[in-house]
């Protein structure tokens, strides 16, 4: 297939394209799903992370 001699290498080539497409389709289907309110713990975490960054 595609000039590739070995079916397992052809399979790897196809799976690379297929898994990339899977990511695109999944991302588009769930584009607006999973929105979450920012919780207190998120803000607290971000403030501490800012502090960690400053120290570097």
């Amino acid at each position: 297939m595609f000039g590739i001699e070995d079916k397992y290498v052809s399979l790897a080539y196809l799976l690379c394209i297929a898994s990339s497409l899977l990511c695109v389709v999944y991302g588009l289907l769930n584009w607006n799903r999973g929105q979450e309110e920012t919780r207190e713990e998120d803000v607290r975490w971000a403030q501490e992370e800012k502090h960690v960054e400053e120290e570097l």
Binding site: C23, V24, Y26, G27, L28, N30, W31, N32, R33, G34, Q35, E36, T38, D42
Partner: peptide, 11 residues
């Protein structure tokens, strides 16, 4: 910020 950003980043 949320799971939505992760979903979008997958694409």
């Amino acid at each position: 910020k949320s799971r939505r950003e992760l979903n979008r980043a997958v694409a």
